[in-house]
Nucleic acid binder design. Structure first.
Length: 336
RNA sequence: GGGUCGGUGGCAGAGCGGUCAAAUGCAUGAGACUGUAAAUCUCACGCCUCACGGCUACGUAGGUUCGAAUCCUACCCGGCCCA
């Protein structure tokens, strides 16, 4: 059940390089908060420069507590959760993330502090806020679904066309309607319906939101974001040891294939290290890829808004502070 | 100066008499996406029009053809080779 007294969750979104972390840390100091990262790449150990972890001197140089899987607090610095929780050699996914995030949030709330969910991975943040059904990942989930990947099924469907996959899905769930044109997702849907025997609609229904949320989105002009991205990119490559980091990960046993699957810095630097591109070429391509990523992030947030979730768009600390003050004054649970 | 190859949409690059507003890739724009999400995928992309359709386009200017990005001539520009 919900904690009636303290189920507040502050969420901070925005495209990459917009300054989410910086803002979040400042707010954490101001409002006695702790940070929960909603970033699909910060979860991996050893991926620091490329995910911006090293820039945060406030990130705990922490030790992982085996029991809680939550980072220990290091003195006055702001604790960060859901960071460095997985080896880059292992698979990580949404279900695992959601489980960790909910646990971290509860822990923070129990301490009487304000959890601040910060990140650029739209799916992760949304799944936490909206309470997606993910295998009973946390107590608030209505119905445990938790459909695990079925490799055999996936292999058997791999060669089907989009039309064929749609037909198969339709057969399993006559009421399903989807405009999905991505084979990977269609196969996933088939997998879920087949294993649970539940209609797709039911599987994709979120529970009530578990939290009393205030969602702040950093919204800067596109040109500004592009500038910030490029500036940060050059710093990462020339000063922060981005290339060395990738090299180190590879030496530690992370395959090139795996590294490239992480995308952006990890992908393009790997290609450079393998001699597939020279440095200038790599930087140009990488820069473009990050711009495109930022765009995709914004598309996600706007979609979330269209689905009915309010996001307050901000571009500076002061506004954020005022909005939060106002929100904290309101009684818990009444701002849906 | 002589020879030679080439000049195509934002870029790269096909096309070499009609079916070409012109393949493909990239960039760009919009979007999808609940267990890979920094991933994966879809659509649009000369101009005008909701659309049927119309208009302007393949270095420039002429020409040959019913018809030219595609053939011919001259010129301009670039690469290479010989002087």
């Amino acid at each position: 059940m919900k904690n009636k007294n303290n189920n507040k969750l502050l969420v901070i979104l925005g495209p990459t390089a917009a300054g989410k972390t910086k803002l979040a840390v400042k707010l954490a100091h101001k409002f006695n908060g702790e940070i929960v990262s909603a970033d699909s790449r910060q979860v991996y150990r050893g991926m620091d420069v490329g995910t911006g972890k090293d820039l945060q001197d406030y990130v705990l140089p922490v030790r992982k507590s085996i029991k809680s899987k939550v980072h220990k607090v290091n003195t006055a610095k702001i604790p960060h959760h859901c960071i460095d929780v997985a080896s880059p050699k292992t698979e990580f996914n949404l279900a695992k993330y959601v489980k960790l995030a909910h646990r971290a949030i509860s822990d923070i709330q129990r301490k009487g502090k304000l959890p601040i969910l910060v990140g650029g991975t739209g799916l992760y943040a949304q799944a936490v806020v909206e309470g997606y059904n993910l295998g009973g990942a946390h107590p608030h989930t209505i119905k445990g679904v938790g459909v695990k990947p079925d490799k055999k099924l996936r292999a058997s469907l791999a060669k089907k066309s989009v039309a064929e996959l749609r037909k198969i899905l339709k057969k399993l769930d006559p009421q399903s309607k989807t405009k999905l044109d991505n084979k990977r997702y269609l196969i996933r849907y088939i997998e879920m319906v087949k294993q649970t025997k539940l209609p797709l609609k039911k599987l994709l229904t979120a529970s009530d939101s578990n939290y009393d949320c205030l969602i702040l989105g950093i919204n800067l002009p596109r040109a500004e974001i592009v500038k910030l991205i490029d500036k940060r990119l050059i710093e990462r490559i020339e000063k922060q040891g981005m290339i060395e980091e990738v090299e180190k990960l590879h030496k530690a046993g992370v395959s090139w294939k795996r590294l490239e699957s992480f995308g952006l810095e990890y992908k393009f630097v790997s290609q450079y290290l393998r001699g597939r591109a020279d440095k200038d070429e790599m930087i140009v391509k990488l820069s473009i890829a990050i711009h495109q990523f930022a765009k995709r992030q914004m598309t996600w947030w706007r979609r979330w808004e269209r689905q009915g979730r309010e996001i307050r768009w901000i571009d500076n600390y002061k506004i954020a502070k005022e909005l939060i003050k106002h929100w904290l004054k309101k009684s818990t649970g009444s701002n849906m």
